[in-house]
Computed example of a mutant assay.
Amino acid sequence: MTIVIKGAAAVEFDPPRVRENCDIVINGNKIAAVGNGAAKDVTADEVIDGSGRIVFPGIVCSHHHIYSALSRGVLAPIGPTPDFVSVLKNLWWRLDRAIDEDVLHFSTLTASLDALRCGTTSIVDHHASPDFIEGSLDVIRQGMELIGVRGATCYEVTDRNGRDGMMAGIEENRRFAMEVQADAEKGDKPRLVEAYIGGHAPCTIPEEAYERMADVIKETGRGLHLHVAEDRYDVSQSHVVYGEDIV
């Protein structure tokens, strides 16, 4: 299917510029041509009048927590939160324990639709659901693919729910990365969602987890998605344990 957007103002990021009165030709899922008169000899299945409108490349959200999409506007008595660690303990670590498969599915749909509505077409997600670990990344992938948004996701490894939860998080990262790679090699599924290996924050990741995560990174060839220095506590903990700045 060929779609033509006629006469729009096309915003380009590299190099940054605005091209007025542009035609944009889309063949299937690829942009075939952009420019003045680019659609002159094109037979289109659909023509969209872009007069007075702006068209720009999809934005990338480089860090998101899709599981939190349904919490927007929630009023909860979470107690005093004088620092970031208190916010985690009193709010986010309580919320993520309540996530099950259904909640995660609808959170993914909500976050993906919100992203597209704002012009964001790619999401780099960082996930946690301690009571629903195995298969959780599949639910996110399926929801993103259903809406049509691109991105990557991972499970945040942490010891805050015990060693079993920590090891389950590492295995979910490994399993999902291997699954994504196998699907890519078969080529029979849309390649919209990729995999990273995820870690929560250095203050909740022990040496054993780092070592196992390093093994999984080598095994899968995937990158690491990790929170770093979000609060003074993270920096202080690094000084105490390692005698080094965290960055």
Rank of each mutant, 00 (worst) to 15 (best):
N29Q: 10
H225E: 11
S238A: 11
I123C: 08
C61M: 06
F106C: 01
S68Y: 03
H65M: 08
Y242Q: 15
D100C: 01
H227K: 09
D41S: 15
R19V: 11
D138A: 13
P202H: 06
D188S: 09
G35P: 00
A39L: 05
T120E: 12
V42I: 15
G162P: 15
V149M: 06
D100T: 06
V47E: 11
R174V: 00
A33W: 02
M144R: 02
V124T: 12
A76P: 03
P202F: 06
D159A: 13
I140C: 05
D245P: 11
G243W: 03
D131P: 00
N90P: 13
V74Q: 12
M178T: 08
P77C: 02
D245Q: 11
A10C: 12
T110E: 15
E207G: 05
Q237T: 01
A177Y: 06
A177K: 01
A209P: 08
E101R: 05
R17P: 06
L70V: 10
I26H: 02
L70I: 12
W93A: 11
A111N: 07
H127W: 01
E145T: 05
L104S: 04
D131N: 14
D41G: 11
S136R: 00
A44G: 02
T153K: 08
E219W: 12
E156S: 10
I217G: 06
R117T: 04
H239C: 02
C61N: 14
F106A: 00
F84C: 07
G119P: 01
Y242L: 15
V139T: 09
